[in-house]
Simulated scan of single mutants.
Amino acid sequence: MPPSRSDRGFHPGLADDLAGAALALARWFTAGATLWCVAPRWEPHAQHIALEFLHPVVAGTPALPAAALTGPALVDTARVSARAGDIVLAVAASDEAEVRSLVTRGPAWGVHTIWIGSGPHPGAVAADHLLWLDDPDPRISSRGDFVLLYHVLWELTVRCFDHPALMRPEAESPSAATVHPDLGQLGEVVTPLGDGTARVRTATGTETVATSFVEPVHVGDLVLVHAGMAVSAVGMEEQR
């Protein structure tokens, strides 16, 4: 007998997670976002998702800007591709280091993130939306579960455009990774300048900040920026 939906990891809260992610996607697209899709171990999934959004097959649904990022060095590729306000959607298991790094950097780049995954829950990650299957089966990428998830996500997203009133930004729902202004905002070191300062990318742009509290800094390090200073390092040993 085929496994039931619950046996295959479709937990009861997944429907709510999908609805929330779809509404967010529709709003981000309305604001001018491009969707960048990644799946380091399963690149056809990234290509499939981009195709669905870019070339919809349902009459009357909009074509939405989307592209798959493939090949090595995905973090570097996403860094130069994604603009503030764009979206990175990843399909990956929880042990995928590149995806963890991408999701962690999302707030520094001003990029929204959605992670479709399976297996052990990734814990307190900075993704705006997690669509998770509690299923450790290594064959999950070829069973159709992920395909079903992102097809439903696409369908719900395009249906949101039928309700223009829903497209207004939801002011009281900040990114899951937003940092309180009193504490600072996440930034990524672009260029250490060698004089106790560095060029640092944040969601609001690239600026020169003082780095004396966190020296030495390297390209790609994550720091917390407050009042023109990098006040602490954020997992730099894991994020380069």
Rank of each mutant, 00 (worst) to 15 (best):
G144F: 10
R100V: 10
G196Y: 09
P136D: 15
V88Y: 07
A39T: 07
V125D: 09
A73F: 10
T206K: 08
P192D: 01
L224T: 10
G106P: 09
A233R: 15
T208H: 03
A198F: 13
L23M: 11
T178E: 15
L186Q: 14
P122A: 00
D134S: 14
H180N: 08
L51A: 15
V219E: 14
H121P: 03
A19R: 15
T204F: 10
V75K: 05
A233W: 07
I49N: 06
V58I: 11
P164Q: 07
R27S: 01
L74Y: 01
R159H: 06
A59F: 12
P174R: 05
V88H: 08
L69T: 11
E52V: 07
A26T: 08
H163T: 13
M236H: 11
R8T: 11
Y150I: 02
R159E: 03
A63M: 06
V88F: 00
P62N: 06
E96I: 01
L25M: 14
H112T: 11
P107L: 04
L35T: 01
L64R: 13
P3N: 13
A97P: 01
R5Q: 13
R139I: 04
A108V: 04
L166F: 11
A127T: 06
P2N: 06
H163E: 10
P181F: 06
P72I: 08
G13Y: 04
D17S: 15
G187L: 09
A66Q: 09
P216E: 02
A198I: 12
G123I: 05
G110R: 12
H218P: 03
A227R: 13
T70P: 01
S142F: 04
P44H: 00
S81R: 13
E43C: 05
H218M: 08
T191A: 11
A59K: 14
V219L: 12
G184S: 05
A73T: 02
H11R: 15
I87Q: 02
W132R: 09
A59C: 08
E238P: 03
G184D: 03
R199F: 00
E172R: 13
R168N: 08
A78V: 15
A78C: 15
L148Q: 10
W42C: 05
C37G: 00
P44F: 04
E215C: 00
D182R: 15
E207A: 12
H112P: 03
T34H: 14
E98K: 07
P174T: 09
L54G: 10
M229L: 02
A210V: 13
F161R: 06
H129D: 12
G106R: 10
V125F: 06
A21C: 10
L64D: 01
E170G: 03
R83S: 15
A108D: 00
D182C: 02
G110V: 02
L23G: 11
A97L: 13
G106S: 06
D137Q: 08
P216N: 03
A93P: 02
P174E: 03
A67Q: 14
L64G: 08
A233D: 07
R105E: 08
E237Y: 04
R83H: 14
A68T: 02
L133Q: 09
S173W: 14
E188C: 12
T211P: 03
S212W: 10
